[in-house]
């Protein structure tokens, strides 16, 4: 179980990105974070694996406090938390396979990675993960030759290589068209359900949230303004919606479902 307690973040330039955010995530949850751009979604996700250092509060995961971990402990924590990004963050000129193998770096002896070498077991696993993602035939292509949807699957595969217990997905479908958005999210859902990996995902489109979430939290100006189950969000009224997104917000749809 992951508990966020009174989390706060003030950036060096004085921006308050998060204020006193507290919530719990049960194992196996598909938690979706909603909120406007700049509401603190990315900061929140990055605080969990400390790509951004929180300035206040604690993050307790399975009884240990991530926020106080030393660098070795932090790396061990990070390797159990996969991360998926809006712009995929692949090394564009490296092959798909290399990008996926990078997910094993937390487990690889530094001496081995110095010569850019991974164990045969890791390589075999990488092929399996790519096969499950349906992009095995692209393994030796350069990452930037793939389409956006395929690139995001490479990103997810890289996260899966970490044997993660949690996957943090920072707007994973914001760079994709609606059809690919659905297939990518349903792939994440499949991972969530079959491998019991907790997913924390920030999203923009409310109908995607309603379709996939088992739990939803809403952020506005760095504050937690909404917390509800998947069922709650499906019954969400316009008033609640506007509470999160502001008075001027209108609902938009992310297009048809593919299944």
């Amino acid at each position: 179980m992951l508990s966020i307690k009174n989390l706060g973040k003030v950036y060096d330039d004085g921006t308050r990105a998060l204020r006193d955010v507290s919530f719990d995530v049960e194992d196996g949850e598909f938690l979706i974070i909603i909120g406007l751009s700049g509401s603190g979604k990315s900061t929140l996700l990055r605080c969990i694996n400390r790509l951004v250092e929180p300035t206040e509060g604690h993050i307790i995961w399975n009884g240990t406090d991530i926020t106080t971990a030393d660098s070795k402990g932090l790396r061990e924590t990070r390797r159990k938390i996969g991360m998926v990004f809006q712009h995929f963050n692949l090394v564009k000129r490296s092959s798909v396979l290399k990008n996926v193998l990078a997910g094993r770096l937390g487990y690889t002896a530094p001496a081995l990675s110095l010569i850019n070498k991974f164990s045969d077991r890791d390589v075999k696993r990488a092929y399996e993960v790519l096969e499950r993602a349906g992009i095995l035939n692209q393994a030796h292509k350069r990452a930037d030759e793939l389409s956006g949807g395929q690139q995001q699957r490479v990103g997810i595969s890289r996260a899966l290589m970490q044997d993660p217990e949690i996957i943090l997905a920072d707007e994973p479908v914001a760079s994709l068209d609606p059809v690919l958005a659905h297939s990518t999210l349903s792939y994440l859902e499949k991972i969530n359900q079959e491998q019991k990996i907790t997913v924390l995902c920030s999203l923009h489109y409310l109908d995607l949230v309603q379709r996939y979430a088992t739990k939803v939290i809403g952020l506005r100006d760095g504050r937690l303004v909404y917390e509800g189950s998947g069922d709650d969000i499906r019954k969400m009224t316009d008033a609640e919606f506007k509470q999160i997104y502001g008075e001027d917000a209108e609902r938009v749809h992310a297009g048809p479902e593919t299944h």
Partner: peptide, 17 residues
Amino acid sequence: DPGPIEAIKATGANHLQ
């Protein structure tokens, strides 16, 4: 591009990696 650096960091890699 800082993206891949962030991504590799998130896998638990050390500075050298």
